[in-house]
Amino acid sequence: ARPALIADALKRASARPSGNWFVVAASREVRTGGPPFGRTVGGAEVVLWRSAAGELHAGPGICPHLGAPLRESRVVCGTLVCHWHGLALDGGPFAGWEPYPAYDDGVLVWVRLDAVGGEEPTRRPVVPRRPAAGGALDAVCTTEGRCEPQDVVANRLDPWHGAWFHPYSFVDLTVIRAPRGEDDDAFVVDVSFRVTRRCVVPVRAEFTAPGPRTVVMRIAEGEGAGSVVETHATPLTGGADERPRTTVIEAVVAASDRPGFALA
């Protein structure tokens, strides 16, 4: 490993704008006709739900009346109804409750929190380039860790750690090219993904960080070329918390030119 190289890549990633957008869930976790979804981001409670027509809504997760946790409420015909005293929210401003901008990219749901991000806001998040939706499969995994988002990004930007700490998954890893600066800021590696003890799938992959809390691994050559693994690090706690925690939301969007792949 080359710590200075990883530190420089992390510094460049941290300087890129996010527009105050944070990944909070998989798109399928916020369902039309389903219950509200709650997530804590940077110490702020957030609630999300969909209207009867499927429109995504987001806002503070605390009821403006007496502070009930709205994630425990219910959605009635697309309206969020507080389970304490029945205050109804249709997604627009009401009684001191102000909605947050939200965006569904088809795989993940993002929420813009200007008070948490502290940057110049943008209309939409920076969504990584992915395989075309019609021929791709996606899966999303969410975990939590006692760390800061920068720790997650640094970990994912370290291509060497996979061979050292995850030999059951990666073998024959060779770094072909390291980042050369802002205009060529990618780690390129040759690596084989272990399927069984004797069966591996060799690919060439690129690791990039399009934003301060996102790392993308894209298969450039080999089986599944164009497929991506996105790692999004969303802070759970506020910046002043002495025991920071982070939600790691990882999305795999896989494609293949093999016949019948999308039907598998």
Rank of each mutant, 00 (worst) to 15 (best):
V191D: 09
T196I: 03
S73K: 13
P125E: 00
G59D: 05
E72Q: 14
L5R: 11
G92I: 01
T196S: 09
P212K: 12
C141K: 13
F94K: 07
V203W: 13
V228P: 01
A9V: 04
A233E: 14
R28D: 02
A58D: 08
S18D: 00
V203E: 04
R180S: 15
L137Q: 13
R204Q: 13
C147M: 10
L157T: 06
A15F: 01
T40W: 14
P99L: 04
I6Y: 00
G61K: 03
F170V: 12
V252Q: 11
K11F: 10
H83E: 09
A68E: 08
R197K: 13
V252R: 06
F187I: 09
Y168L: 14
P35K: 01
V252I: 06
R194W: 00
G86F: 03
G135A: 09
T32Q: 10
W97Y: 05
Y103N: 09
T174P: 08
R71F: 15
V75L: 04
D257M: 11
P128F: 02
T208K: 00
C82E: 05
W164C: 06
L5H: 10
P167D: 01
V253S: 04
T122F: 03
N155D: 11
R129N: 04
R12S: 11
A264L: 08
V23R: 02
H232T: 12
Y100W: 08
T122P: 03
P35E: 12
E120P: 13
R156W: 13
H65M: 00
G38A: 08
G38H: 07
T174F: 14
A102Y: 10
V175Q: 04
R130A: 13
P235H: 14
R12A: 13
N20T: 02
E119A: 02
E223R: 15
D138L: 13
T32A: 12
A115E: 15
I62Q: 00
A58H: 09
V229S: 08
G211N: 01
W160C: 01
R12N: 09
T174K: 14
V30D: 00
